[in-house]
Protein backbone atom coordinates (compact mmCIF):
# COMPACT_ATOMS: atom_id res chain seq x y z
CA UNK A 1 0.00 0.00 0.00
CA UNK A 2 1.32 3.42 -0.91
CA UNK A 3 1.76 5.80 1.95
CA UNK A 4 3.20 9.26 2.59
CA UNK A 5 4.94 10.07 5.89
CA UNK A 6 3.04 12.81 7.76
CA UNK A 7 6.20 14.77 8.46
CA UNK A 8 6.89 15.20 4.76
CA UNK A 9 3.59 16.99 4.28
CA UNK A 10 4.14 19.12 7.39
CA UNK A 11 7.71 19.94 6.43
CA UNK A 12 6.48 21.05 3.00
CA UNK A 13 4.03 23.36 4.77
CA UNK A 14 6.86 24.68 6.97
CA UNK A 15 9.09 25.32 3.94
CA UNK A 16 6.33 27.23 2.12
CA UNK A 17 5.65 29.20 5.32
CA UNK A 18 9.30 30.12 5.71
CA UNK A 19 9.57 31.25 2.10
CA UNK A 20 6.51 33.41 2.64
CA UNK A 21 8.09 34.85 5.76
CA UNK A 22 11.26 35.73 3.87
CA UNK A 23 9.12 37.49 1.31
CA UNK A 24 7.26 39.49 3.94
CA UNK A 25 10.49 40.54 5.63
CA UNK A 26 12.43 41.35 2.49
CA UNK A 27 10.15 42.94 -0.06
CA UNK A 28 9.49 46.66 -0.01
CA UNK A 29 6.74 46.53 -2.59
CA UNK A 30 3.52 46.28 -0.64
CA UNK A 31 1.84 44.11 -3.29
CA UNK A 32 4.59 41.53 -2.89
CA UNK A 33 4.23 41.71 0.86
CA UNK A 34 0.54 40.91 0.51
CA UNK A 35 1.32 38.04 -1.86
CA UNK A 36 3.83 36.64 0.59
CA UNK A 37 1.18 36.79 3.27
CA UNK A 38 -1.07 34.73 1.01
CA UNK A 39 1.71 32.15 0.69
CA UNK A 40 1.97 31.94 4.49
CA UNK A 41 -1.78 31.54 4.90
CA UNK A 42 -1.86 28.87 2.23
CA UNK A 43 0.93 27.01 4.00
CA UNK A 44 -1.18 27.03 7.14
CA UNK A 45 -4.08 25.58 5.17
CA UNK A 46 -1.83 22.87 3.78
CA UNK A 47 -0.81 21.89 7.32
CA UNK A 48 -4.48 21.47 8.23
CA UNK A 49 -5.19 19.31 5.18
CA UNK A 50 -2.20 17.10 6.03
CA UNK A 51 -3.46 16.74 9.58
CA UNK A 52 -6.94 15.88 8.27
CA UNK A 53 -5.46 13.18 6.04
CA UNK A 54 -3.51 11.75 8.95
CA UNK A 55 -6.69 11.13 10.91
CA UNK A 56 -8.95 10.57 7.93
CA UNK A 57 -11.32 13.26 9.21
CA UNK A 58 -13.19 16.09 7.48
CA UNK A 59 -12.60 18.71 10.22
CA UNK A 60 -9.24 19.70 8.78
CA UNK A 61 -10.88 20.55 5.49
CA UNK A 62 -13.39 22.71 7.33
CA UNK A 63 -10.53 24.59 8.95
CA UNK A 64 -9.03 25.03 5.49
CA UNK A 65 -12.32 26.51 4.35
CA UNK A 66 -12.16 28.97 7.24
CA UNK A 67 -8.62 29.97 6.25
CA UNK A 68 -9.78 30.39 2.68
CA UNK A 69 -12.54 32.75 3.81
CA UNK A 70 -10.10 34.62 5.98
CA UNK A 71 -7.66 34.96 3.08
CA UNK A 72 -10.39 36.24 0.79
CA UNK A 73 -11.52 38.86 3.29
CA UNK A 74 -7.95 39.83 4.08
CA UNK A 75 -7.04 40.26 0.43
CA UNK A 76 -10.12 42.41 -0.16
CA UNK A 77 -9.30 44.73 2.72
CA UNK A 78 -5.56 44.67 2.01
CA UNK A 79 -6.00 45.56 -1.63
CA UNK A 80 -8.39 48.36 -0.64
CA UNK A 81 -5.69 49.70 1.64
CA UNK A 82 -3.10 49.45 -1.12
CA UNK A 83 -5.30 51.45 -3.47
CA UNK A 84 -5.83 54.10 -0.84
CA UNK A 85 -2.10 54.22 -0.08
CA UNK A 86 -1.20 54.52 -3.74
CA UNK A 87 -3.66 57.38 -4.08
CA UNK A 88 -2.11 59.29 -1.20
CA UNK A 89 1.60 58.57 -1.63
CA UNK A 90 1.84 57.67 -5.31
CA UNK A 91 4.10 54.76 -4.40
CA UNK A 92 3.93 51.13 -3.31
CA UNK A 93 6.95 51.49 -1.03
CA UNK A 94 5.92 50.17 2.36
CA UNK A 95 8.60 52.28 4.11
CA UNK A 96 6.71 55.50 3.50
CA UNK A 97 4.19 54.27 6.08
CA UNK A 98 6.53 54.96 8.97
CA UNK A 99 4.93 58.08 10.46
CA UNK A 100 4.17 56.20 13.67
CA UNK A 101 7.80 55.92 14.65
CA UNK A 102 8.58 56.85 18.24
Amino acid sequence: MESIPVEHGLILAAILFSIGLIGVLTRRNIVFVLMSLEIMLNAGGLAFIVAAARWGHAEGQIMFLMILTLAAAEVAVGLGLIIQMFRRYKTVDINVLSEMKG
Partner: peptide
Protein backbone atom coordinates in the same frame (compact mmCIF):
# COMPACT_ATOMS: atom_id res chain seq x y z
CA UNK B 1 15.76 52.98 24.33
CA UNK B 2 12.36 51.53 23.62
CA UNK B 3 11.46 54.46 21.42
CA UNK B 4 14.33 53.46 19.14
CA UNK B 5 12.64 50.10 18.50
CA UNK B 6 9.56 51.92 17.25
CA UNK B 7 10.92 52.57 13.77
CA UNK B 8 7.53 52.78 12.12
CA UNK B 9 8.62 50.20 9.50
CA UNK B 10 6.09 47.39 9.17
CA UNK B 11 8.79 44.92 8.13
CA UNK B 12 10.71 45.67 11.30
CA UNK B 13 7.65 44.81 13.38
CA UNK B 14 7.09 41.61 11.37
CA UNK B 15 10.73 40.70 12.01
CA UNK B 16 10.18 41.27 15.74
CA UNK B 17 7.17 38.99 15.69
CA UNK B 18 9.14 36.29 13.85
Amino acid sequence: MIVKTQTGYIRWYALSIA
